[in-house]
Write a protein that binds this DNA or RNA. Structure first.
Lengths: 211, 211
DNA sequence: GCGTGTGAAGCTTTTCACAGCA
DNA sequence: TGCTGTGAAAAGCTTCACACGC
């Protein structure tokens, strides 16, 4: 079969790895390779070859036995599966250092994601231009979500301000929230929420060192 | 038992959650609560009560049946378990927006982690002061790791520059690397490596929306 | 021959459900 | 009574190992 619609439930761990396959396929492609084996993808990503094959097989039979995977078509497939070929419209709230870093991140504004609006509460920042966007006041968020069809909001405000931002975005009909504030957010079940906690991995390393 | 030394192997997932318990216990403590139940910790973190109890039980019997966990002593315990009471000395390489965001992150430079040195390759940034640190040239990294006993290096440079930075840090004897560059790094097995890929979660959300 | 795709086994992690203690 | 700590069961994920097709 070579359908992109999974017949079996796809583990979240698999989806997160797809993102990495997509990235390294870009570099493999730049290197002029047209075919790549699960073994090679494994060594480029740090996962195992069995994981690579299993992960891809959730979505179809993309490889050729005895050969490997066709780089360019696999990459396109992954883009379709991940939905990064859909031009999601993203609003970013909180244009501090982290917000700016994300707006400039290669593979964010670049590959598939359009940060189409940026918001902040700081009068000194509002009206300034960051990465091609004029920063608007946070109060303008709800109208922008509605009027400019924003699908996803990235939250890079301080923890204390995050829930209010999210409530406004949700009320205005946003479909997904990516939260970088170190706080637990409440959203209705029809809104997708993902959290990135920048402290978790340092503390994990700290634990590993301390053991 | 109430030893902090686990008798059974601790799942990595548990360690990552400890970090979140530690954070929310801070807010519980500020609220003046002295005791907290697994149910409450669950609702504050988004995990389940069973997970909370199981996670903590890996390290001892910290709770009182019928009551809950003593907030302040549990928090101290977690700090000891995670090793964030040890004052790890951290060097940060790449003082772009992401690097600056991390240096200013509440609960980084604050709670247990000291960014004691910052490095960059940009002549315009070198010598400037960021979050209390004078930015030094990347060439000074190895000497600093050796002479100033840096335990951990945070890498926030572009992907293409990351491996070289890591090689220098490793050669100079660093024990752990936290990598934010979207690339697979090679380190010897005695060096702990963790990766944070900022694109993974957006793409995960994108997948969820696309389904 | 080679490398994918996949049953089956093995391992990890979560959830259940309740005994036991404050 | 209320809530922890934990065996046991269930679910989820990874690894093994090999049949299959290029």
């Amino acid at each position: 079969m070579d359908d992109s619609n999974p017949r079996r439930p796809v583990p979240p761990t698999t989806v997160r790895r797809l993102s990495t396959y997509y990235r390294v396929l870009g570099t493999v492609q730049s290197d002029g390779q047209t075919s790549v084996s699960s073994e090679t993808l494994a060594s480029l990503t740090g996962f195992t070859a069995a994981q690579v094959r299993r992960d891809l097989a959730y979505f179809g039979s993309f490889g050729k036995r005895g050969v490997g995977y066709a780089v360019s078509s696999l990459r396109q497939r992954l883009a379709a599966i991940l939905g990064i070929d859909r031009g999601w419209r993203i609003g970013l709230v909180g244009v501090g250092n982290l917000g700016r870093a994300l707006m400039a991140y290669p593979g964010f504004n670049n590959q598939g994601f359009d940060v189409v609006a940026a918001f902040d509460s700081d009068a000194d920042v509002i009206g300034s231009r960051v990465n091609g966007q004029y920063v608007r006041p946070v109060d303008a968020l709800a109208d922008a979500v509605r009027g400019e069809h924003i699908d996803m909001v990235i939250v890079t405000v301080p923890a204390g301000a995050a829930q209010k931002v999210v409530d406004q975005a949700v009320a205005a009909g946003v479909r997904a929230i990516l939260n970088f504030a170190p706080t637990q957010l409440r959203v209705p079940s029809h809104v997708q929420l993902s959290n990135v906690d920048l402290a978790v991995e340092v503390e994990y390393l700290s634990y590993s060192l301390a053991e």
